[in-house]
Design a protein around this nucleic acid. Sequence first.
DNA 1: CCATCTTTGTGCACGCGTTCACAAAGACAT
DNA 2: ATGTCTTTGTGAACGCGTGCACAAAGATGG
Lengths: 254, 254
Amino acid sequence: MATGRTHRPATRSRGIPEATVARLPLYLRALTALSERSVPTVSSEELAAAAGVNSAKLRKDFSYLGSYGTRGVGYDVEYLVYQISRELGLTQDWPVVIVGIGNLGAALANYGGFASRGFRVAALIDADPAMAGKPVAGMPVQHTDDLEKIISDNGVSIGVIATPAGAAQQVCDRLVAAGVTSILNFAPTVLTVPDGVDVRKVDLSIELQILAFHEQRKAGEESAADADAAAGPAVTKNQHRKGPDGDVPAVMPA
Amino acid sequence: MATGRTHRPATRSRGIPEATVARLPLYLRALTALSERSVPTVSSEELAAAAGVNSAKLRKDFSYLGSYGTRGVGYDVEYLVYQISRELGLTQDWPVVIVGIGNLGAALANYGGFASRGFRVAALIDADPAMAGKPVAGMPVQHTDDLEKIISDNGVSIGVIATPAGAAQQVCDRLVAAGVTSILNFAPTVLTVPDGVDVRKVDLSIELQILAFHEQRKAGEESAADADAAAGPAVTKNQHRKGPDGDVPAVMPA
DNA sequence: CCATCTTTGTGCACGCGTTCACAAAGACAT
DNA sequence: ATGTCTTTGTGAACGCGTGCACAAAGATGG
């Protein structure tokens, strides 16, 4: 017995499944596009195609929000845009700070998608004194020393971490201590946060590695038996069977 | 209908669950850190803590790869690093191209995490003639016209799309036609690709919106006051009907 | 007003992923 | 060698997410 049970049943979403929440922005984007083209109504089938999901899934997702459709007709685009926006909390303004104004941080600061939908970059923060005052995306970079004051003055509750991995946890701790309760982490590290703080991570390296896995698998299927020719000492350890896979693992580095 | 999209029942991983594959890079990172500190072995409990996952989950994940641990001791760090690397296909070199060298594309080009682990930026491609030849991350940007040639000359099978949303599908089509079978998409669009092509998307805006949802929920729990009748226009489902187009729907919030 | 047609909303079944809990396996001390 | 102790590997239960398939709801036309 190692640790006591601090079992949280995850986030108690107001009845809306997490998987559904993750798709709402997708629907919202598709709906916004329709709205701009002045399309009045849309069927679940059409909208699902535009969002790249199954239509049954879409209908079930919407059912968690309430009954906003009209049978025989479909969904009112404008109405749905509003409902989803409200559900996602996009009808209010969310000031965010970006910490770590390197290449990525600067790119994020310039990213239009931020401001487009309820999010406003309240401040850019960097630890490098040479960056202080320097304008990025039409906004002066501020020094990390003022982090706490910036957070509290602007009522920031969402922070974006784009620092090197080594600084991420420290920055995270300061953000949380200053009152930030949601963090979007671009640094390749596992962040530890107290209960009640949400962390989402975006990791370019991980995404690429997942792609590489599938890519390797695809390559291995077409021309089977050519990538395993690597030499290596025979290992008595792996006498396990791996199922129907014809893979022959037998290599181990010293 | 226009798109006859065949929906994939996910990828048919050769026995290794997709969820496990997605965690392997996480384990690999933690193991690499241990390796650099010359730690010889690690228990599932320790490694799980470092990777931020449940230890039982980690053991089950590893069980899909084979029996690489020693009971009573743990896992050999070096051995596991190698096994996971091999499983992910990181023992070989993956040339990638980045298309769309704006702020984000440039940031990606400079991102160290790319080159660190089997991935090599083979080329930077942009549609802007003014960018052509300009060095970014010590590498000259090439024009979109040469995309097909670049792909085939370098044997690129992984492409990164960092273009504006409007250009993404077109770029995607050209990449796929040229032989790319894995795409990492940063453009806020749903990409349609033929069977056999993997697409992973990274969407900053979506991540923020998901955070906003939880943030709103957190705020709403503390001060349960305005949830429904907030700023919503007085429109009910049945009354709401947009007449003939021309009228501006009055459903949008401030 | 009734029939028909379209599309939503959802009950249900199934499969995947997660977690628990424990037996088996090996290290280590005596 | 034998017993004890640690840690793995996994069977089994459970819960969530997905997709099918269909009844209910409403529009539309006669």
